[in-house]
């Protein structure tokens, strides 16, 4: 049977930063071949194929919230595998090896995490699950 791929619309121009990515133009329609939880999606936009940021795409049919898991305010324990310094004021700065709680796994790869009293976005690419529940 043919494989029906999800179609998404590009919501903002994106210039690729490595050769495995593709440039996106606002309004382009792309088909998604693979969705990584780190927020990079493998797309095709004939004749181009490559990785694109999920944060620049919106689904053609229905809100993407339906695909997204609900927040888990109890938190799921993860360890940071790489340090990251916040670039925006809603992000968290964390060192490598810190244990944090993931409370919302967003499709764009920037999960909402909690460390003590602080909450903010952090790249899921730099997180590893500990397998423990808080």
């Amino acid at each position: 049977a043919p494989i029906i791929l999800d179609s998404y619309r590009v919501i903002a121009d994106y210039r690729k930063t490595s050769k495995y990515e593709i440039d996106l133009c606002t309004g382009d329609l792309v088909e998604i071949v693979e969705k990584k939880p780190n927020g990079w999606w493998f797309c095709q936009c004939e004749p181009k194929r490559g990785w694109a940021p999920a944060s620049y795409l919106e689904p053609l049919d229905g809100p993407e919230e339906s695909e997204e898991a609900d927040p888990d305010y109890a938190g799921e324990l993860y360890i940071t595998t790489k340090a990251y310094s916040a670039a925006l004021d809603d992000e968290l700065t964390l060192e490598e090896g810190e244990t944090i709680e993931v409370i919302h796994k967003l499709l764009d790869g920037w999960w909402v995490v909690r460390k003590g009293e602080e909450t903010g976005h952090f790249p899921s690419m730099f997180l590893n699950r500990t397998g423990e529940k808080k």
Binding site: A12, T17, N38, D108, P123
Partner: peptide, 22 residues
């Protein structure tokens, strides 16, 4: 391989999308 995803975090959503979600 072409299927190797980028090793850096993807960009945050454009500013207007972040506002819409907030």
């Amino acid at each position: 391989s072409i299927n190797r995803p980028p090793q850096n975090p993807p960009p945050r959503p454009p500013a207007e999308m972040r506002r819409k979600r907030a």
